[in-house]
Every structure is written in C-alpha cells, then in structure tokens.
Amino acid sequence: MNAWQLIASGDATLFAIVRLSLMVSLSAVAIAAVIGLPLGALLALTRFPGRAALIVLLNGFMGLPPVVVGLSVYLLLSRSGPLGGWGLLFTPLAMVIAQSLLVLPIIAALTRQTIEDLWSEYRDELTAVGVGPWGRVATLLWDGRFSLTTALLAGFGRAAAEVGTVMIVGGNIDGFTRTMTTAIALETSKGNLPLALGLGIILIGLILAVNAAAWGVRAWSEQRTG
C-alpha cells in the first residue's frame, strides 16, 4: 500500500493521524501564542537590566533541540518525575506541552522584533494619547497582526515538522499518540520507504495548506484594514 492509495481510500487510520498531528501542533501554537505574543511585546516595550541577555537567550532558544526539550519534559512528566502524579506521559497533552515549549521562543522572539519595529513608529502617538503598558501591548499586537501571522506560522512549521519531542513524550502509540512525523519515522524503520515518503509528502501538503489558508486570511484582511 502506498500513500496515494491511502489517501484515495480515505483510510481512517491516516485520517486520525493527520487529525492528531494538526490538533497537537495547532494547540501547541495556540498556547505558545497566548504566552509568547504578550511576552515578546512586553520585552519589546520595557527596559530593564539583563534585557539584552534575555533577548539573546530567547533568540538562541529558537533553535532549541527538540530532543532536549522532549527529554526534559519526559523527565518532568515521568511517574518518577516531579509532575508524575498528573499521569500525562505518553498522552497527546504531553506532546502539546513539549511542543509549546519548543515553539514559545520562536513566537516570543519574532514578536519582540516585530513589535519593537512597530513601536518605534507608534511611540509618539501612543504616548501622546496616554496609553498604558497593557494598552500598548494590545494595540501593537493587534496592529502587528499581519507580521505576527508569520511568527505563528514559523512556530506551526516547527511544531508540525519535528519528531524529537513527540516521539519521546508521546511514545508513538498506535492510534493514540502517533503523529505524521512519528509514523514517518516508524515506516522508515520498517523499511517501508515509499509509504514513509508518501506520508512525508502528505505532511508537507498539510503544512502548505495551513500556510496558504493563513496567507489567504491575511490578504483578505489586509485588503480591508491596511
């Protein structure tokens, strides 16, 4: 069976894997966005000792090795680890948590850059009308929304494409925590290279589809509000 036959047959297993992959990665991006957008914006707007070091750290963490994140989360969530009582290891939620950590620095760092540029343009006006710190964050995030979409997409691309964390904390359990990437790794190890490649092409297609959708929304909305 190759990937095209799989798609054509509307295979339920494939569909479940695709759905899980999307759900895990999109959830991770959503969580990372809720934390990373305001965090990046605050970092852009505030000045404090150690800020430069924090920015360097954040930029560096954009390249955080997935395996290291996976291992750290594994040790945290393991029954023998500090959060073992939650019983989250080898669940989709564990994958969401690990991927959120992976994506957070990307979103926060790109947000900081975007907001800092926008702030230099808006500073006088917002100061003149007396907008407080949180109002500034909200205004800049909203007005930077088109550029910030790119930050979110970068995060999504990272999450959807990585295999290191989801393999370690998810365990690649059939029908439960098997994602596109771990399925590809598994088929590769079974020597089923055509199917692995086919799944890979489907994954690339998915990522492209999400990007195209985001681009469409952006273009449509930009048309309306500049």
Binding site: E121, Y122, E125, A128, G130, D143, R145
Partner: peptide, 16 residues
C-alpha cells in the same frame, strides 16, 4: 493628558 491632543507633522496611522 486627556485635556490635550498633539498632531504630528507626519501623522501616525494605525493599521486599521
């Protein structure tokens, strides 16, 4: 500051 307003030479237009 609500009693005052300042118009800049080059207006800052929000992306809205």
């Amino acid at each position: 500051q609500t009693r005052r307003a300042l118009l800049f030479q080059k207006p800052v237009m929000l992306r809205r």
